[in-house]
């Protein structure tokens, strides 16, 4: 029974990390088809914003929202300055955002130095039987699920969500119906960046904040969204579930590196079997 609980806990934590790092990308890449290689650096910016906000005296929970706002605004600036010239030129977007990623890593290292910053974990442990589980990790699982449901509801039930989905599906038609698509693209990118920034802040108590941290997440985020296929939310959730289960299990019985390598291995096999991704055969959905 305890064994089951431990595995469930490990897999849950893994799953929530996959969701957190790839949800923003699911919006930016899954919906907008913008390959944003600076995604990992958006996470890093969120982490740094959170560290600075807590150092200024805010509580960790408030700092997460500050991080989301800061990175969201930064995302809007990036969209205006770089991305909007590159819609439809998918390879160029990828290269330009890679340049942005190098620039951000270099810039943050210059500003804050190469050392890692950390935040005190505000929660203790909870014991189940005779094993201690970190309460923060449990909170992280809850936050990941809440973000997921929030994003789903935003796209599914609000007028803004409807306009965004319509614009992504057929920008010309949306423009013909009087939608300011330019602004919709800008706001959607900003929303994706904000989600990423929030995720970065959520991860801080576990990972800390350091300039090269983005690199650790970017690979996982992209294989999750790509394996998910063309329905960004459902795809990301199902891919996160599969990869989270594999990663959580293998990392627990072996080491975290073996966990990651097995995820990559499964992802490549999965793409060979389902080249369109997990949701490739589903016609409708989000």
């Amino acid at each position: 029974m305890e064994q089951v609980a431990i595995y469930a806990y490990q897999i849950g934590v893994s799953f929530s990390i996959f969701i957190l790092i790839s949800l923003g990308l699911a919006v930016i890449f899954g919906m907008m088809r913008v390959i944003n290689l600076a995604q990992g650096e958006f996470l890093m910016l969120g982490a740094y914003a959170c560290v600075l906000a807590t150092q200024a005296g805010l509580s960790l929970w408030l700092s997460m929202f500050v991080a989301a706002a800061v990175v969201g605004l930064f995302g809007i600036v990036v969209e205006r300055v770089i991305i909007r010239f590159l819609y439809g030129r998918i390879v160029d977007t990828l290269l330009a955002t890679w340049g942005l990623s190098l620039f951000l890593v270099g810039g943050i290292t210059t500003l804050f130095g190469p050392q890692s910053e950390s935040v005190v974990n505000p929660l203790g442990n909870v014991t189940v039987g005779d094993i201690a589980l970190s309460q923060y990790s449990l909170a992280m699982i809850a936050i990941a699920i809440a973000l997921l449901i929030g994003t789903y509801c935003l796209w599914r039930f609000t007028r803004f969500g409807l306009i965004v989905r319509g614009t992504m599906q057929n920008p010309d038609m949306a423009r013909g119906l009087g939608v300011n698509t330019d602004r919709v693209f800008m706001l959607t990118f900003g929303f994706g960046a904000a989600l990423t920034g929030f995720a970065g802040a959520v991860l801080v108590p576990i990972t800390g904040a350091a300039p090269p941290m983005g690199v650790f997440f970017i690979a996982k985020a992209f294989i999750t969204v790509i394996s998910g296929g063309h329905l960004p939310l459902i795809g990301t959730v199902s891919a996160s579930a599969i990869f989270g289960a594999i990663d959580g299990f293998v990392a627990f019985v072996s080491s975290s590196v073996v966990g990651e390598m097995s995820v990559l291995f499964v992802a490549i096999i999965l793409l060979r079997l389902l080249p369109m991704g997990i949701t490739g055969h589903l016609r409708r959905g989000l």
């Binding site: 770089i82 010239f85 590159l86 160029d92 290269l95 330009a96 890679w98 340049g99 942005l100 990623s101 190098l102 620039f103 951000l104 890593v105 270099g106 810039g107 290292t109 210059t110």
Partner: peptide, 20 residues
């Protein structure tokens, strides 16, 4: 110049946006 990556990043962005 401390951060070579910073400069390389700018070079990459400029070339993609301007000298494609």
């Amino acid at each position: 110049v401390g951060q070579v990556t910073l400069v390389l990043g700018v070079v990459l962005m400029v070339f993609v946006l301007v000298f494609n």
